[in-house]
């Protein structure tokens, strides 16, 4: 049932993302109005899917990659919905909906073969996954905002009027999203990493266990640190911050996919 719900969620996110893109490209079709509702419906069903997972006789652990990716997608969508309420960030919500679709679709396929694992006696694993997912989804938000910033910046520099450009967020709004995402995302991921270290210490007696997961977490944290230092310490904002965030997120995606393929 949870897998079927995940498939439904993936479909809702895909339709929401496409509707939002169509709404931006061809506003007269009025698809854009339905998109936030579809995204909200997807997030609601996603919550139900997690509840269903939790009530399974032998639920897959949150620490499994498919479940963690699904959680990350859910948190990312909730963050996008919260941002949509504050500013005209439809382009950002469209990108997040499509990213969430990929994540949830992957989870729906991967969850089929997942074997239940013995539950840890402590809450560190769950805390680690939840905090890290929230931090990483905010990095995704910063990366998407960066990509949109670059697109709007290029269009403005080219001086060619394009109807879609006027329906994208302003550069200032995208830059503020970058700032907010880094401000909240980095502490969340840092706490997630600490929780993970404490979990590892409880299991193995060492703070750093090594292995793909630990390396991946360290790389993500290092990327975040670099972005935070550049933005808040060196004052790199605007286009430069956008490019860094987009590249950082793209690199992280590459690392995750690479790690996923290797393990």
């Amino acid at each position: 049932m949870a897998i079927e719900l995940h498939q439904l969620v993936a479909a809702l996110y895909l339709v929401a993302g496409l509707a939002q893109i169509l709404g931006i490209a061809i506003p007269k079709l009025r698809f854009g109005r339905a998109a936030p509702w579809l995204l909200g419906a997807g997030a609601f069903v996603h919550g139900l899917a997690f509840a269903q997972l939790h009530t399974m006789p032998s639920p897959p652990s949150l620490t499994h990659l498919p479940t963690a990716v699904s959680l990350m997608a859910w948190i990312g969508v909730l963050q996008s919905l919260a941002l949509l309420r504050r500013a005209r960030l439809e382009g950002l919500a469209a990108g997040m909906a499509l990213l969430a679709f990929v994540g949830v679709f992957y989870a729906s396929l991967a969850l089929r073969g997942v074997e239940p694992v013995p539950t840890s006696a402590t809450s560190w694993p769950h805390l680690h996954v939840i905090l890290a997912s929230a931090g990483l989804s905010l990095l995704a938000v910063a990366g998407l905002a960066g990509a949109l910033f670059i697109a709007v910046d290029r269009a403005l520099k080219s001086k060619r009027p394009a109807a879609w450009r006027r329906r994208l967020p302003s550069l200032e709004a995208l830059d503020r999203v970058n700032s907010l995402a880094l401000s909240f995302g980095f502490p969340l991921l840092s706490c997630g990493v600490v929780a993970g270290m404490l979990w590892t210490q409880g299991e193995t007696g060492r703070l750093f266990a090594g292995g793909a997961h630990a390396i991946w977490s360290s790389v993500a944290w290092a990327i975040y640190l670099a972005l935070v230092v550049a933005r808040f310490r060196l004052g790199r904002r605007g286009r430069e911050a956008a490019v860094r965030a987009a590249l950082g997120f793209a690199f992280l995606l590459f690392v995750v996919v690479g790690v996923g393929a290797l393990t």
């Binding site: 500013a87 450009r165 967020p169 302003s170 200032e172 709004a173």
Partner: peptide, 10 residues
């Protein structure tokens, strides 16, 4: 003014 709104939120 329209271009300014594409750069600045307000």
């Amino acid at each position: 003014v329209d271009l300014a709104h594409q750069i600045f939120e307000s």
